[in-house]
Simulated assay, not measured.
Amino acid sequence: MRPSFDILIVGIGGQGTVLASNVIGEACIIENRSVRSAETHGMAQRGGSVESHVRIDGRYGSLIVPGTADLLIAFDLLEALRYRHYLSASGRLIVNRHLVVPTPVYQQGMDAPDEESILNTLANLDLTCIDAAELAEEAGNILSQNIVMLGAASAEIPLRPESLEEAVRRCVPPKTVDVNTTAFRLGRERGAGS
Rank of each mutant, 00 (worst) to 15 (best):
D131C: 12
A132P: 07
A132F: 13
A133F: 13
A133K: 13
A133M: 15
E134C: 13
E134T: 14
L135I: 06
E137L: 14
E137D: 05
E137A: 07
E137M: 14
E138N: 13
A139T: 01
A139Y: 10
A139E: 02
A139G: 12
N141L: 14
N141A: 15
N141E: 10
N141V: 04
N141I: 11
I142W: 02
L143Y: 12
S144W: 11
S144G: 10
S144N: 05
Q145P: 03
N146C: 13
N146D: 01
N146T: 03
N146K: 06
I147C: 09
V148C: 12
M149V: 04
L150A: 07
L150N: 00
G151Q: 01
G151W: 10
A152W: 01
A152M: 11
A153F: 02
A153M: 09
A153K: 11
S154T: 00
S154K: 09
I157Q: 00
I157D: 00
P158D: 04
L159Q: 05
R160M: 12
R160H: 11
R160G: 00
P161Q: 10
E162V: 15
S163Y: 06
S163A: 15
S163N: 02
L164K: 05
L164V: 04
L164D: 06
E165V: 08
E165G: 05
E165M: 13
E166M: 14
E166L: 15
E166V: 05
A167N: 02
A167F: 03
A167R: 08
A167K: 06
V168M: 08
R169V: 10
R169Q: 10
R170A: 02
V172Q: 05
V172T: 07
P173L: 10
P173Y: 03
P173N: 12
P174I: 12
P174D: 06
P174M: 03
P174E: 12
K175C: 02
T176F: 15
T176D: 05
V177S: 06
V179L: 08
V179Q: 02
N180L: 13
N180M: 14
